Simulated assay, not measured.
Amino acid sequence: MSHHFSAADLSRIIEMAWEDRTPFEAIEQLYGLSEPALIKLMRRELKAGSFRLWRARVSGRNTKHLKLRNPAISRAYCPTQYKR
Results as ranks from 00 to 15, higher is better:
Tyr77Thr: 14
Leu30Pro: 00
Gly32Met: 11
Cys78Leu: 12
Phe51Met: 02
Glu19Gly: 07
Arg52Tyr: 09
Leu38Glu: 02
Arg21Met: 14
Ala26His: 11
Ala76Gly: 11
Leu30Gly: 00
Thr63Ser: 15
Leu10Pro: 01
Ser2Gln: 09
Ile13Met: 03
Phe24Gln: 01
Ala7Leu: 07
Ala8Val: 04
Gln29Asn: 08
Tyr82Met: 13
Tyr82Asp: 07
Lys83Val: 12
Pro23Tyr: 04
Arg69Tyr: 02
Gly49Ser: 14
Thr80Leu: 09
Ser6His: 06
Leu41Gln: 08
Arg84Ala: 09
Arg61Cys: 08
Leu68Arg: 15
Thr22Phe: 07
Ala72Leu: 15
Ala7His: 02
Leu33Glu: 06
Arg43Gln: 15
Leu66Met: 08
Tyr77Gln: 10
Leu46Phe: 11
Leu41Cys: 10
Ala72Lys: 14
Asp9Phe: 08
Gly32Thr: 08
Ile39Phe: 07
Lys40Ile: 13
Leu68Cys: 08
Arg84Cys: 07
Pro71Trp: 09
Ala17Asn: 06
Leu38Asp: 06
Trp18Thr: 07
Ala48Arg: 02
Arg75Phe: 03
Trp18Val: 02
Arg69Ile: 09
Trp18Gln: 09
Ala7Val: 12
Leu41His: 04
Lys83Gln: 11
Ile13Cys: 03
Phe5Glu: 01
Pro23Trp: 05
Asp20Tyr: 05
Met42Lys: 05
His65Phe: 15
Arg57Ile: 01
Lys47Gly: 10
Phe5Asn: 03
Pro79Asn: 05
Leu30Asn: 11
Ser11Asp: 06
Glu19Phe: 11
Leu46Ile: 06
Leu30Phe: 06
Lys47Arg: 14
Arg43Trp: 10
Lys40Cys: 10
Ala56Asn: 15
Ala8Phe: 02
Tyr77Pro: 00
Lys67Asp: 15
Gln29Val: 12
Pro79Tyr: 06
Leu66Gln: 07
Asn62Pro: 08
Gly32Asp: 08
Asp9Tyr: 08
Cys78Ile: 07
Ala8Gly: 02
Ala48Ile: 08
Ser34Asn: 09
Trp18Gly: 00
Met1Arg: 10
Ser59Lys: 14
Ala8Tyr: 01
Thr22Leu: 06
